[in-house]
Design a protein around this nucleic acid. Structure first.
Lengths: 332, 332
DNA sequence: AATCAGCTTGAAACCGGTTTCAAAATAATT
DNA sequence: AATTATTTTGAAACCGGTTTCAAGCTGATT
């Protein structure tokens, strides 16, 4: 790999001059510019962004830390982050923390060390708060309430999501909708639960729920438990879209039809939901916007230092497909 | 963030001594060791791995570049890489190249700049060969034939995979199995195709295939085309597990039952296949082993410089579930 | 007591870039 | 033509670490 010194030697100038040509940080004699450009061409020199960042404090890298790279919802957000990042000349690095505080700390350390321009994280464990506090980088959090510790929070309106999915089931005629409740340590889990309970109370419906993880390997057990505890359930609010595959499997084994015998509403709005059979009615989070906005906040932070938009709650939308059907017969 | 100089000052020694204490690279007076340790504790100093790597040429980072972070098969491999890496004190960085040569080049550049210890890549485009040639890092390729350009190739036995899936369909009584053929620029796509064609010829069966992408959003169109061109098809060899969701959807819309009217064999062996309804018969790639071995090769390369195991073809295995059934009735 | 070997140590050079600073070259002014 | 203002330039310092190298110290040997 050619280095700046090689280019300088070949062009017969100092490396300071080469640096100035590359960065346009000062005027350089036209003749020398030409020689430097040629030397860069010949040697195939590409400046080492990381070495450069030692001084500049910016490597044009955005870190994205997720609890699991098997979570398709978070990965779809990642795609959006990457797109927005790349359009602005940034790169995205995806890190799998595995809900392991040591890994989370290690990756935050690493991103800090490489002078990343910011971190987007779904911070599961509260015990990395110290790590985050010590981290001088802008941090956007995707799954917590706003706090002075973070630069910004980007989330969709989970309370609304809890509400509209429940309301929809009730409108469709369900009298015993059961919530697969996400972990209450996440604000998303808490807010959705609140929305669900509020709607139930407003309609004089008994709130029913069982606890579930977001990870897909918990789905089968959960669904079985759900059906045993609430055999009269006529609707399920799934913890997320992915889990619905497990739900289908269990229901099918027990001969219960969807939506005739029991209705289902998913959550997230990942592509997978549309491919399911029957296609999944679900609460669509604005995945693209969550990702792009998160990336934008970090990029703006670097370039303008504008500290606005601390808390961003984006609207969700109900997408009615085939797993719910109004008794009145208005199928979407 | 505390730096080595802060620690040195607090302990009343030079930063060289601090470095020696941290790395154990030379003997240091016990009294001073103690003072340094205390100073590290007090300041919370963590050495900057990246700055360190400028000199050491190793940052204990492994890069994993995939064409899409929405590909669950590659992500499951990523999980295995990460596990193996972390167990050995390495970190894994996941990069999404989007099949875009510019992004691929950018990420290879970045990993080189940060002195990563190696790159694991599913290299789609041949046009980044130059980038790879110029890259001084060990490179493990997951989806190409072996070549002197790469440190090693890790793949499963795609030819066998093509064979056993076809043989299984024939054993189950299929007379018109159709292959959804993966892109022929990938060795996996080519090898599976070869296996399929060979088995067909051995049994006097007419090979039938349509071309497909690995990405899931092509599945619906592909399946429709398949059924139109080969309405008499009684078996489908899916391009991968994920696509089977689309296949189910199309078949169900046309009232064709699985496996009674048409059988399906998937490919990859991702967790998703077991959650499908009906559960998917598929060719299991040794996902865990592919990932761990790839990581090991890079780690060994760093620590021992042993350049063995250039080409690694791992065995595949047929997992019979519910989408295939022998006419004789031996359901697994 | 003087010499020598062996250990411990900090100053300085290094990794690959960027930027400051002061000198050198050029342009403008009188 | 001489002086001054302006621009262009390279040497050196810097980013945060590691390592070399030679000096300082210790203890052993004669």
């Amino acid at each position: 790999m050619a280095q700046i010194g090689d280019v300088a030697k070949l062009a017969g100038v100092s490396s300071a001059t080469v640096s100035r040509v590359i960065n346009g940080s000062a005027k350089v004699n036209e003749e020398k510019v030409k020689r430097v450009m040629e030397a860069i061409e010949v040697t195939g020199f590409k400046p080492n962004e990381i070495a450069r960042s030692l001084y500049k404090k910016s490597s044009r890298i955005i870190g994205y830390i997720v609890p699991s790279i098997l979570n398709i919802f978070l990965n779809e957000i990642g795609r959006a982050i990457e797109d927005e990042a790349f359009q602005n000349g940034y790169k995205m690095i995806l890190c799998n923390s595995d809900e392991n505080p040591k890994k989370e700390a290690a990756y935050i350390q690493m991103l800090t060390a490489m002078n990343a321009d910011g971190i987007i994280i779904t911070a599961n464990n509260d015990n990395l708060d110290e790590e985050i506090r010590n981290c001088p980088l802008p941090i956007v959090v995707l799954d917590k309430e706003a706090s002075s510790r973070y630069t910004a929070v980007v989330q969709s309106d989970n309370y609304s999501g809890g509400r509209i999915s429940t309301e929809h089931l009730l409108e469709c005629g369900c009298r015993h909708p059961v919530l697969m409740r996400g972990p209450q340590k996440y604000s998303s889990g808490r807010q959705r639960f609140l929305g669900y309970v509020d709607v139930c109370n407003e309609h004089g419906i008994q709130p029913l729920f069982i606890d579930s993880q977001f990870s897909s390997n918990d789905g089968l057990r959960c669904t079985q438990e759900l059906l045993e505890r609430f055999p009269y359930a006529d609707g399920i609010l799934a913890v997320n879209d992915m889990t619905v595959l497990s739900i289908y499997k269990v229901l099918s084994a027990r001969g219960r039809r969807v939506p005739e015998d029991i209705m289902i509403v998913g959550y997230d709005g990942v592509e997978l939901g549309g491919l399911m059979n029957p296609a999944l009615t679900t609460v669509m989070q604005p995945i693209e916007e969550i990702g792009r906005l998160s990336a934008k906040i970090i990029i703006d932070q670097v370039e303008d230092k504008n500290p606005d938009c601390r808390e961003n709650i984006l609207p969700v939308q109900l997408k009615v497909r085939q797993t719910t059907r109004s008794q009145a017969g208005n199928e979407a």
